[in-house]
Simulated scan of single mutants.
Amino acid sequence: MNKDLDNAIAQKGRHIGLVIAGTTVLWLATTLFLGPALGLPGRYALLFDLAALAGFIYAVINIFQLWRMRQDSQR
C-alpha cells in the first residue's frame, strides 16, 4: 500500500470514530440532562433523536467509503 493512502485511511477511520463518539455523547447529554434540566417538552427529545440519527447515518456512509478505500488499496 502507498504510505499516503495508509494515512488517508487512518485519518478517515479516526474521523469516523470521533463522529460516532461525539454524536453519542451529545445525544445522551441533550436527551438525558439538558432537556429535562431546561424543562423542554418531549418533542424536543424527538428533535435530538433525529439529529443523532443524522449523525449516525453520516458515520455509516463514511464507513462504507472507508471500506471501499480499503478494497481499492488491496487491488
Rank of each mutant, 00 (worst) to 15 (best):
I63S: 07
Q74F: 05
V19C: 09
A59R: 04
T23W: 01
R70D: 01
A29Y: 13
I9G: 02
L50S: 08
V25T: 14
Q65A: 12
Q65P: 01
N62S: 07
I16D: 03
L34A: 09
L28Y: 12
G13P: 00
L34V: 10
I61M: 00
Q71Y: 05
L26F: 14
Q71K: 10
A52I: 06
L18N: 13
F33V: 13
W27F: 15
L26G: 13
A10V: 07
I20V: 15
A37M: 10
Q11N: 12
I57K: 04
G13N: 13
P36T: 07
L28H: 14
R75H: 09
N62K: 12
H15S: 13
L46K: 06
D4Y: 10
L50M: 08
L53N: 07
A45C: 05
W27G: 15
I16C: 05
G17D: 09
G55A: 02
A21P: 05
A52C: 09
G22D: 04
N7T: 12
K12N: 08
G42N: 13
I20W: 05
K3H: 13
I57W: 06
I16Y: 07
L26D: 06
I63H: 00
N7C: 04
G13I: 05
K3R: 15
A52E: 01
M1P: 10
L47M: 13
A54Q: 01
D49G: 11
A51H: 12
M69L: 12
F48D: 10
G35L: 12
G17E: 10
I57F: 06
Y58V: 01
Y44Q: 05
A10L: 13
D72A: 09
G39R: 03
F48G: 00
L47C: 03
V60N: 04
V19P: 02
L47K: 11
A21L: 12
L38D: 01
G22W: 04
M1N: 08
Q65G: 03
S73K: 07
Q11K: 14
L50G: 02
K12F: 03
A54H: 02
A45L: 14
L40Y: 06
A51E: 10
A37K: 06
A10G: 03
P41G: 04
L40N: 07
A8V: 00
A37D: 05
I61E: 00
